[in-house]
Write a protein that binds this DNA or RNA. Structure first.
Lengths: 129, 129
DNA sequence: AAGGGAAATTAGAACCATTCTTATTTGTAT
DNA sequence: ATACAAATAAGAATGGTTCTAATTTCCCTT
């Protein structure tokens, strides 16, 4: 799995490839440490700082999204579509939540005039009964 | 400003009163440290750990909400109505955002079946042009 | 009003995700 | 092939928050 061409300007290193590959393969919203543990199998000398650097580079280039739940360790999400996250308190797993068709979130909010929104985050917590 | 009666079970201490008072007076979404700095004027020997304890107690008793923006220091919000937060990147200030009348957020999301939602958080980032 | 026991407070140590620093290595344009 | 900018590794540093242990305070019972 190669990082696509459109990400030029981002120097292609073994470490970035592995981080990218792991994010794309699993649909697990891993933390930096989870990425670290996994890619160590392929790259035994990789450092945690490098994993953070790679993830940051991917975030900057809008290849992945960084998502936060409370102040838990940040997680990284390869789904770039606008979506929210459901955090299942029973299993600890995270599910992407799509909006129903035709929904424009900012239309539903009572925003101050002249507001330019650059980012929206929706987080739900609960249980799958 | 007294903590209301309905919060019995919560022992009323000078520290909790000051924390509560400060949260209710300002509409500033302060951090624990900001609360600490302010109530020190009235209670010079108060400790930061106590401020954390008081805030936690107020959160547990649903007198205030704890809100997080990315992994910045947690902030505390005395507004208990269901609402979102707009984080103005220019000034760093936070504004409560009401939903337009009649909006039920979960109706607009493509949730898995049998989902019980216990909490929703909406965060917007941007600028007031 | 006094005593006792549970709960809250204090001070500082500990924790842990993340960032920073510095020396070394690696990619890539020339 | 070379050189230079950028990325990596290792570990130290940072900073918000939580924990620990000793002390103090609240409040119920007498």
């Amino acid at each position: 799995m190669q990082i696509p061409e459109e990400i030029s300007g981002l120097r292609m290193t073994r470490q970035r490839q592995e981080v990218y590959r792991f994010l794309m393969e699993g649909r697990s919203h891993p933390t930096a440490n989870e990425v670290f543990m996994h890619i160590k199998e392929a790259l035994p000398n990789v450092s945690l700082a490098t994993v953070y650097n790679c993830l940051e580079a991917l975030v900057q280039h809008k290849i992945v999204r960084k998502v936060n739940f409370d102040r838990e360790p940040s997680r990284y999400c390869p789904n770039l579509d606008e979506h929210g996250h459901f955090h299942d308190e029973t299993t600890g797993t995270i599910h992407d939540i799509k909006f129903k068709p035709g929904i424009n979130l900012t239309d539903l909010l009572d925003l101050p005039a002249n507001t330019v929104i650059s980012d929206i985050e929706i987080t739900l917590r609960g249980q799958l009964a």
